[in-house]
Design a protein around this nucleic acid. Structure first.
Lengths: 215, 215
DNA sequence: ACCTGAACACCGTTCAAGT
DNA sequence: ACCTGAACACCGTTCAAGT
C-alpha cells in the first residue's frame, strides 16, 4: 500500500519513531504495533529504537501527545468562538473528530488520561475560561468540561469499537420482545451505528441544554 | 493473598474458567491475565483450558457477559422506578457501579460494545420502554440512552485509568497561567479525581435536565 | 556513535503423549 | 476423557559485537 522510495532515509529520532508508530497504528491497529513491526516501518532493525526511546510505553505516550496536539490544532482552526456554547460544542466535536481520524489509537486517550491532558492543558484552560467568562460557577464549569469530554470519549470509543467489530448481529431477547412488541426494532437500532453523527450531536446538545439551565 | 484449601478442586468448565478470569483481572489487572497465569489460578496446566474454550477471545467475551449480567442485577435491585428520570439515572449509576467494582475489566465493555450488549438487551429495552411510556419520541429516547451509557463509560474509564495512573502530577501551562491567572488551580483540579462521585452525578443531572426539556 | 544478532523470559496456541 | 510437556511463532528488552 505505502511504498517508500526514500533511498536516503532520515536519521532515527524520538519524533520520527513516535510519528511512525501512529502511522502503523492507524494503518494496522494498536495490537499490531510491535517493536519489530515498527522497525520495519522505519527501515531499521527494531531494537535500534531503544537507542532513542526508553521503551514502548514512552512511544505510546508520544502518540498520546500527538493526538492531543491534533485536538488543539482542530480547536484553533474552529475558533474563535462567539459563545460558551459554541466553544464547548466545538470542544466535544473536535475531540470526536480526532477519534474518527485515529480510531485505532483513540483508546490510548481513555487510559492514562492524566498524562495525555498534561499535553493539552492550554486548550482545556481556554474552554474553562470561556465558561467562567459566561458566568458559570467554577464547579459547574469544571463539571461541564469533564462531562463533555467524557461523553465524547465514551461515544467515540464505542463507535470505533463497533466499526471494527464485525461480529454477529446481536440476537433478540425473546421475553422482552413478546411483552413489549414495539421495542424489537428500537433495540435493534441500539447497537448498530445508524446515524451515529446525528446521535452524537443530539446527546451533546442535551448536555449543553442542561448546562444552559444552570446559568 | 488468596490461599485455596480446595484439595478436591471442581472440574474445569467454561463457566469456572470465565469466573476465574474475572477474579484474576480484578486482582492483578487485564494485562496480567495470561493463559498460563489463568491455569495457575485454576490449579491446572493452562493449556488445559483449550479443552473447554476456543481461546482467549472467548474467555474475554465471557467476562463481558458477566459484567453485563451484574449490571442487570444491579438494575433489578435498584428498581422498580417511579419515573423515567429515576430509571435513567439508575441506568447510569449502576453502569458506573459495575466499573467501580471491576475497574480493570471495565475497558472490555468499551471495546466490543455490541457483543457486550447482546447479553443485556432486556435491561436496555426496559429503560427504553420507560422513556417511551413517558412520551419521548423514539429517536430522542434512543439518543438519551446512548448518551447516558456513553457518558458513564467515558467517565468511569477515565476514573479507573486515573486511579491506576500514578504518574507525575501534570505540569502547569505557563503561557495560559499568566494570561488567565485565576485558572491555575482550576486546571489543577481537572485531571485529579477530587470528588469524582459528585462530578459524575452533576454531569448525569445535566444530561437528564437537557432530556427533560425535550419532553 | 549508531545499528545488528543473538539471547532471555515471556506470550497464545497446537498437538502428540501420557493416564 | 481429560490433562501434560514440548514445541512453534511470536512478544519486549538487553547487550556484546560489529562498523
Amino acid at each position: 500500500m505505502s511504498s517508500k522510495p526514500d533511498t536516503q532515509r532520515p536519521p532515527l529520532s524520538a519524533d520520527r519513531i513516535v510519528a511512525t508508530a501512529l502511522d502503523v497504528i492507524d494503518a494496522e491497529g494498536l495490537e499490531q504495533l510491535s517493536i519489530r513491526r515498527l522497525g520495519d516501518a522505519l527501515g531499521v532493525q527494531g531494537m535500534a529504537v531503544y537507542r532513542h526511546v526508553s521503551g514502548k510505553d514512552q512511544i505510546l505516550d508520544g502518540v498520546r501527545r500527538l493526538l492531543v496536539e491534533e485536538f488543539g490544532a482542530r480547536m484553533r482552526a474552529a475558533g474563535p468562538f462567539d459563545s460558551w456554547r459554541e466553544h464547548l460544542r466545538a470542544f466535544g466535536t473536535c475531540y470526536r473528530d480526532v477519534g474518527r481520524a485515529h480510531p485505532h489509537a483513540f483508546g490510548l486517550l481513555a487510559t492514562h488520561a492524566v498524562t495525555a491532558w498534561s499535553h493539552g492543558r492550554a486548550t482545556a484552560a481556554a474552554a474553562l475560561s470561556a465558561l467562567l467568562d459566561a458566568g458559570f460557577d467554577e464547579d459547574i464549569a469544571i463539571g461541564a468540561e469533564r462531562t463533555v469530554i467524557r461523553y465524547a470519549i465514551g461515544f467515540t470509543m464505542i463507535d470505533a469499537a463497533n466499526a471494527a467489530d464485525v461480529s454477529e448481529p446481536p440476537a433478540l431477547p425473546n421475553d422482552i420482545a413478546q411483552t413489549h412488541p414495539s421495542l424489537g426494532r428500537l433495540v435493534q437500532t441500539l447497537s448498530p451505528l445508524g446515524g451515529a453523527e446525528e446521535l452524537f450531536h443530539l446527546g451533546l446538545d442535551l448536555i449543553l441544554d442542561g448546562l444552559a439551565s444552570r446559568l
